[in-house]
Design a protein around this nucleic acid. Sequence first.
DNA 1: CGGAAATTTGACAACCTTCAAGAGGAGTGG
DNA 2: CCACTCCTCTTGAAGGTTGTCAAATTTCCG
Lengths: 242, 242
Amino acid sequence: MHAVLRQKLQIHSALDVDDIAALNKLPYQGRDLADGEDAICQGDRPNSSILVIEGMVGRYHSLADGHRQFISFHITGDLPDAQALFIAEMDHSIRAMGAAKIALIPHEAILALFVRRPAVGLAIWRETLLDAAIFRSTITNNSARPPLARAAHFFCEQYYRARARFGRRSGVGICYLPLSQAQLGDTLGMSIVTVNRTLQQLRRTGAMDWTEGSLQVKNWSKLATIGEFDPSYLHLRAPRRL
Amino acid sequence: MHAVLRQKLQIHSALDVDDIAALNKLPYQGRDLADGEDAICQGDRPNSSILVIEGMVGRYHSLADGHRQFISFHITGDLPDAQALFIAEMDHSIRAMGAAKIALIPHEAILALFVRRPAVGLAIWRETLLDAAIFRSTITNNSARPPLARAAHFFCEQYYRARARFGRRSGVGICYLPLSQAQLGDTLGMSIVTVNRTLQQLRRTGAMDWTEGSLQVKNWSKLATIGEFDPSYLHLRAPRRL
DNA sequence: CGGAAATTTGACAACCTTCAAGAGGAGTGG
DNA sequence: CCACTCCTCTTGAAGGTTGTCAAATTTCCG
């Protein structure tokens, strides 16, 4: 758990020995989630934050008519609800996509850490800002791009983020993405039928395939072109030193 | 300028005398923006943050085909690019909607403030998380709701936020919202023609009218019902003390 | 007053959603 | 071991909605 968080923060932020020592003392509680199990529900008032250890979790809004809208997906090292640190009541839920392992870290421990080790606080703040940048991109993707480009952009982002996190360990051109087509529809704002036909179209281009919860990128540059994908919004380059 | 920022932060966060004294010493530079003028452009590497003093500014993405997608709008007291504090390169632009006044606060001054006055840092962090909550809501609005509800929800949010900021000062049921229909289309992901017809439909319900850059809410509960508007995601209630 | 921009209206084609049904797999219970 | 059910994916067809194209009207500004 501590290693996962440390590695994630160090991608972006410079932490000194004392910062890391403090990180390593964070208390936490591990938890295994079954596929589809909720970690937090809309309306909850959580007093701990989630760190994804293994697998994938998804944020979603529940609408009055029972409809569900997925907002974002998170992998190892992500803190999907640092968002909730200063917010009393959850405005969305977080569930496991496929089986997943998470760690729960008490809010109080994180807040106490900020006081003693500001650099750690700033590193976590930065994580929440990167999340926000991804949200902005999602607004544009779902609002302005037609189905084919929209789906392609989504796959590009998931692949790019997985690659940034795991390197080539996940296999050449392969990325874990355990959604159903219906869930992809609830992510991109398209009907199941349109999702299905759009996927067929994507497959025919030869740029990628997506079966059994696994995304296979066969021609990255073609996929990125179709999806108008420019990864600069993910801000994965090293930032200024603090 | 200092009063605007102080009032805004104190809506959510408890600041003591020393915090406020430090806030009041923040250096800044005022700037007037003409309608449509950019404050920051996509790709810039700004070294100061924007505080909206008067009027309205809008964030937007520029797409390769010249198309523009508006992400969010900001009024007096908002810090539309606190988002950029820890991010090297802007992934979006910010422009004035109508004439506006902003203040530019050097990043270094803000960062230095965090070290001396952590409570101020946490208050600004909180602002960025509220922004993120609005982004999430926008994803759902633009992806899952049909035109009529989508537009109604958008107007509800703008009105509710203006009311939270200005109280009834802006006039009974009135709220400043200087967009063109084309810009509303670029916000909601709809064509101009659909925007126009959706607005006519909204007017016919008697819930609201929107002309000459001014939103008039005639029947709030009806408008909120049409837009399925639940303001809890704006988190305007007092949060836990830090 | 004249020209540009914004709003409004109409018509049509294209696209997407909905409805419906069938095929393929996984898991369960007899 | 097989039958059954449930779920996902796939395909077809019909209908509605939205976008595009085009043009008229109004408003805004110089």
